[in-house]
Computed example of a mutant assay.
Amino acid sequence: MFGKIHEIYSSISGEGISQGVPTVFVRFAGCSLRCGKTESKSLWCDTPYALGPNQGETKTVSNIMDEIETLDKNHGYQILLTGGEPLEGKNRDLSITIAQTIFSYRTKHGKPYPTSRVETNGSEKITLDPFFIFTMDYKLPGSGMENRMDSENFQILEKRHNSLDEIKFVVRDRIDFERSIEVIREQKIQTNILYSPVHGEVDAKELVEWIKIDNPPKCRLSLQIHKVLWGNQKGV
């Protein structure tokens, strides 16, 4: 089994409830969404260099596990599968195999973080598998991708009932925020909720005020601390 991997590196988790945790990132290549791209506004994806399915290098599971081992010899880092999109096409089977391998080894040997976190864009169906934790985007109107969202994922998250799963709303404007509140109410969401502003389009302090007024359950502001520390660099 093999797939296209853009990069594998170690850093800290930059956002969400695992923010600050030492992490090995496995970045898959390929994503069919183009968030934020409209006639008048530009793409806002953090990793446009990984959107093409032919970006990166072809790697086997063995290649990937060897690189993770090199970066994390003591098997103590969180493993984060990201992209691109780790659940799209051939990436899905590769993600499952990586996560199963890590889960089996770390559970057997009593190592921390046995469950791999997956950052997924909301258009691909998530799973009930216990070897995954999900950070799932819900694309709001400002992304131009809301019609690509798989609404069944909300029911799967409810069945998973995992206290570490999270739903992320990236907010471009007030319309986006109001739509997020509608989605939370319509879907009766009880999962952890992250709010992130589109850089340069929404002031984070203004987003905080909106959050304070509506105060959805289990919600928090999520800023990308890796950008605060290193700027918009790759591999950090």
Results as ranks from 00 to 15, higher is better:
residue 113 Y to F: 15
residue 140 L to S: 09
residue 138 Y to T: 03
residue 231 G to T: 03
residue 99 A to K: 00
residue 91 N to S: 06
residue 187 Q to D: 06
residue 51 L to K: 06
residue 22 P to T: 02
residue 13 S to H: 06
residue 219 C to K: 01
residue 161 H to N: 15
residue 135 T to L: 03
residue 96 I to Y: 09
residue 86 P to K: 00
residue 110 G to P: 12
residue 156 I to Q: 05
residue 131 F to T: 07
residue 197 P to E: 07
residue 12 I to W: 01
residue 170 V to A: 11
residue 192 N to T: 04
residue 191 T to Y: 08
residue 81 L to C: 08
residue 9 Y to L: 02
residue 195 Y to W: 14
residue 28 F to D: 13
residue 72 D to I: 00
residue 141 P to L: 11
residue 57 E to D: 07
residue 109 H to I: 03
residue 96 I to L: 05
residue 187 Q to F: 09
residue 56 G to L: 11
residue 143 S to R: 01
residue 112 P to W: 13
residue 197 P to N: 09
residue 137 D to N: 06
residue 15 E to Y: 00
residue 190 Q to F: 03
residue 85 E to D: 15
residue 44 W to N: 03
residue 5 I to C: 04
residue 206 E to V: 09
residue 212 K to A: 04
residue 172 R to L: 12
residue 86 P to G: 05
residue 212 K to E: 01
residue 68 I to Q: 12
residue 148 R to K: 11
residue 89 G to D: 10
residue 164 L to R: 12
residue 99 A to G: 12
residue 39 E to L: 05
residue 198 V to C: 10
residue 167 I to V: 14
residue 64 I to R: 06
residue 6 H to P: 06
residue 78 Q to A: 15
residue 211 I to T: 05
residue 139 K to C: 14
residue 88 E to Q: 06
residue 126 I to L: 02
residue 193 I to F: 08
residue 10 S to Y: 03
residue 136 M to L: 11
residue 197 P to S: 05
residue 233 Q to E: 06
residue 142 G to L: 04
residue 159 K to F: 08
residue 186 E to A: 04
residue 121 N to S: 12
residue 159 K to D: 11
residue 217 P to F: 11
residue 82 T to C: 14
residue 148 R to C: 14
residue 188 K to W: 03
residue 162 N to F: 06
residue 15 E to W: 01
residue 43 L to Y: 11
residue 145 M to E: 15
residue 197 P to D: 13
residue 114 P to K: 13
residue 99 A to L: 02
residue 37 K to S: 13
residue 170 V to W: 12
residue 64 I to D: 14
residue 145 M to P: 01
residue 25 F to C: 09
residue 158 E to D: 14
residue 121 N to H: 01
residue 96 I to M: 05
